[in-house]
């Protein structure tokens, strides 16, 4: 994909990585009790695809996401991202949480620069300050926070905090973004705006996204496919294609095809 947009620009990488989740299982042991959290999970996510994991609380969707992130080890099966098997957390697999998890003692700009600077101190990157600052400026502009680079997290609204968290995750150039109910704690209106924001950013960066949610409408609006989770032991019940055109907007959520997809998922959940 060597298609320089500007004369000086380096080759543009294809951002998304494919994800292969192969017969993953996980059992938690607490005291003498064993709880099977996941069993026999198989899922392939294509490079650049946005797949939603949908299911009720306790269906193991967050556990699965954490296994893909490398924060949890699976007991069975393997996960590979971009052909490499997952072993511990990596900046190649960015993660966004229900709360923005910004570092409250850092300004927006320094939050965004946390990843690059941590990587530099580990010798993983040699980018110097002027280069990093320029990139932070660019990303602040992209997420619409250019006036808030020097603001602290508590000085931002909820939506702005989530956009800052997105900027912080995307500056490390992940090929996969893992999102764990990222907008679950927002009010309904801010949430709509964040959906449009995410769709636009995904359009821009083309990373692969696995998006965990318990909201059917959110799953249909965002996903290329929706993996419905549930059952005992918890697993993927069904993977449903969402044949809606792109680009999508939150305002389109009442069209006929949208409602059809929603109905299909609801049926799958109540079986």
């Amino acid at each position: 994909m060597d298609a320089p947009a500007k004369p000086v620009a380096a080759p543009v990488k294809t951002q998304g990585a494919d994800v292969v989740i192969d017969s993953v299982g996980k059992t938690f042991r607490r005291g003498g009790r064993r709880t099977m959290a996941l069993a026999g999970i198989n899922l392939e996510v294509r490079a650049g695809e946005l797949v939603c994991l949908l299911g009720p609380s306790g269906c193991g969707k967050s556990t699965l996401l954490r296994i893909v992130a490398g924060a949890l080890d699976s007991d069975e099966g393997t996960v590979t991202v971009g052909g490499r098997s997952v072993n511990g957390p990596s900046p190649d697999r960015g993660m966004l949480f229900q709360t923005p998890m910004l570092f409250p003692w850092l300004t927006t700009r320094k939050n965004i620069l946390f990843g690059p600077k941590a990587q530099r101190s580990a010798g993983l990157s040699e980018r110097d300050d002027p280069e990093l600052n320029a990139e932070a400026d660019a990303i602040l502009g992209t997420v619409g926070l250019d006036k808030f680079g020097d603001a602290f997290p508590h000085e931002l609204s909820g939506g702005m905090q989530h956009r800052a968290a997105f900027a912080r995750a995307i500056i490390t150039r992940p090929s996969l973004l893992l999102m764990d109910e990222p907008f679950g704690a927002l009010d309904a209106i801010t949430r709509l705006r964040m959906h449009d924001f995410l769709l636009s950013m995904w359009d821009r960066y083309r990373t692969t996204i696995i998006f965990v949610t318990h909201d059917i409408e959110e799953a249909v609006l965002l996903g290329d496919r929706v993996a419905v989770m549930g059952g005992r032991p918890p697993g993927i019940q069904e993977v449903i294609d969402i044949p809606l055109d792109r680009p999508r907007h939150a305002v389109d959520a009442d069209t006929e095809s949208f409602l059809t997809a929603k109905r299909k998922i609801r049926a799958s959940l109540t079986v």
Partner: peptide, 22 residues
């Protein structure tokens, strides 16, 4: 690596997203 560019671009975020109310 400085030239890492998003694939799609154009327009400010406000134009694209109507999120100014936020």
């Amino acid at each position: 690596m400085a030239g890492w560019q998003p694939l799609a671009s154009g327009g400010t975020i406000e134009e694209r997203l109507r999120i100014d109310d936020a």
